[in-house]
Design a protein around this nucleic acid. Sequence first.
DNA 1: TCTGGGGTCCTAGGACCC
DNA 2: TCTGGGGTCCTAGGACCC
Length: 420
Amino acid sequence: MPVYALVDANNFYVSCERVFRPDLEGLPVGVLSNNDGCFVSRSAELKALGVKMGQPFFETRDLVRRHKVHVFSSNYALYGDMSSRVVACLHGFTPSLEVYSIDESFLDLTGIGGPLPAYAADIRARVKRWTGIPTCVGIGPTKTLAKLANHAAKKALLDPSGVCDLSDPAVRARVLPQVPVADVWGVGRRNAVRLSQLGVTTAADLRDLDPRLARQALTVIGERLVQELRGLSCLSLDRMPSPRRSVAVTRSFGQPVTEWDTMRQAVASHAARAAEKLRAEGMVAEALHVFVRTSRYRPGPACNDSVTVGLQPASADGFVLIAAAANAARRIWRDGVPFSKAGVILTGLRPADRVQADLLDTTDRAKAARLMAAVDAVNSALGRNTLVSAATLGHGWRMRQNNRSPSYTTRLADLPVARA
DNA sequence: TCTGGGGTCCTAGGACCC
DNA sequence: TCTGGGGTCCTAGGACCC
């Protein structure tokens, strides 16, 4: 029987900020989404004050002032770098590891000698010592049970050790009835409502549900969930991430955009960034999707339009994608509408070295590729956006970021200074 | 005034082909 | 009068995840 462990950082973004601000330990701290819109990470102290995941920042201004909450804009360069440090540390514990998200990894611990909880405690201790990041560890014979064990460890359902081992069916029998079905990995809000109509409200109920009924209610995912909760492993460890299928760059605007020129700059900028990501992975895209939309919350007529254009030949050329995105956006642009968000999504991705040549294409593709490589080299050496297409210039749409922390680990100028 | 961003998977339905 | 069946591929939409 396999043994999986899920190592998950505790309120990861907040923990990253605290590594460089140890004075914030024990105080309420939150990290906001792009545009300083919503809370996406909360310290235990902030959760205790009643601030919810995804709650809009503006709703909490009073509370933030009253309780002196420390609020950060998100700093993805920092979180990404801290994440790779955690993963590097975890590699010391198993050769078989799946990086599931920026703050979670599944480890295959099958065949580890000795007691698993002690091993998990070692993992927690070393990650904390080497990176400063606190974690919890859940253990189980399936990924779904390891995930659930992690949930139990975080909520201290059995004990406050930060580790929960659900290998033993007797322990599972004590924990599963305590977990609401909506907290099971893969269930979600909508499915929880459907399941409640079948009388299923806890993880234990779902485990005991007839797999055929689970399939009816939740498709094959539901049937798989039941089996995984029973200890029958259906999901294997994914060590090699499959090649990605899409690249998206979407942003809400700092303020509503009503000028075409501003929208054009935003869409060009998103397209350029998407092309960069594509080139960094050695891929090209066959299709480009652009959308523009008004705010979901603002009263008045809503507008939510999109258009997809094919790219022939498939491309990751910044200038090609900027032109395609701007043309596409022009087709759905409407004068006088207060747009709040726009995005560029690239699909039909394939390796750049396997592009179908186009006999009718007279542009010098090799030359264009050399230009892009030069742009990437300059930006890599001197910082992102050192060299950009003029089409992306203009700041009318840029997002708010009023509380951003320094890039302690990825920018020389922001290196923390130690005084002794 | 102020409400995130980037992904994946599954299914249904239509187009198309033989 | 009476008009097949099976397969693949693609897309849009809906659900989920962090």
